[in-house]
Amino acid sequence: MKSALIVDDHPVVRAAIRVVLEAERFKVIHEASSAGEVMALIREHAPKLVVLDLKLPGHGGLEVLTRLKANDPQCKVLIFTSQDPLHYQDRCLRAGAMGYVTKTNQLQQLHKAIQALMSGYSYFAALPDNANVASPLLSSEKQLIDQLSDRELSILEQLALGKPNKTIAEDMFLSYKTVSTYKTRLIKKLGVNTAVHLRDFARRNHLI
């Protein structure tokens, strides 16, 4: 029996994904709205397919993907997210995802991706080479982003959204000191001067 798990914190999005999965003849569909719920549902139900958003409360979707594949390497994972594939698709591929669809696409793309994965194929968008990125500045900044760890990238996003260190620490189950250390490291790695410049950097590269 075809079973699936939808992981997204927006009820309307989960409902839309459920309609697509039902049209693809999935009989058992479970839902999770946060990273903390995922592993228990995976262990209990062992779904054949997980449709995973990258923007989740608590640990980000990238960390969920890594844990999920470590726990169940055979599970097929399809990323369905608003995050720019230019910065995230390769990371997800390396972490074990079999497909990546952005929410800006029509739902027909989600249908095609699910069909591909369940037939044993992958489903990823063709991305431009660094040499074809719009400007030398953005090309070099993409290289800096590519060198960040998944957790550094997740914290960068949250800092860029203006979240205080304390809030980020609580959301990610980290200490305040750890988040502060990451913030200092990000400022140094990305060659910016302040958290305001971190926000500008993130916005310029479509991370937020």
Rank of each mutant, 00 (worst) to 15 (best):
L93K: 15
Y121V: 01
A126V: 15
Q108D: 12
G99I: 05
L107Y: 10
P128H: 06
P128E: 02
R94F: 04
M98L: 14
D129K: 08
A113M: 10
L127H: 04
S119N: 06
G99T: 05
L110W: 07
L127E: 06
P128F: 03
M98T: 06
L117V: 09
L127P: 07
G99R: 07
K103Y: 12
Q106M: 08
A97Q: 11
Y121K: 14
G96L: 13
H111M: 07
Y100L: 04
A116Q: 02
S122C: 11
N105E: 15
M118S: 12
Q106C: 07
T102Q: 12
M118P: 06
T102G: 07
S119P: 00
L117D: 02
P128K: 06
K103L: 09
A116R: 01
V101R: 08
Q108F: 08
A126L: 12
L93A: 11
R94E: 07
G99V: 09
G120Q: 01
K112W: 09
G120Y: 00
V101D: 04
A95P: 04
Y100Q: 05
S119Q: 02
L107E: 00
A116Y: 00
A95W: 09
M98C: 08
Q106S: 13
P128S: 04
G99Q: 10
H111S: 04
M98H: 11
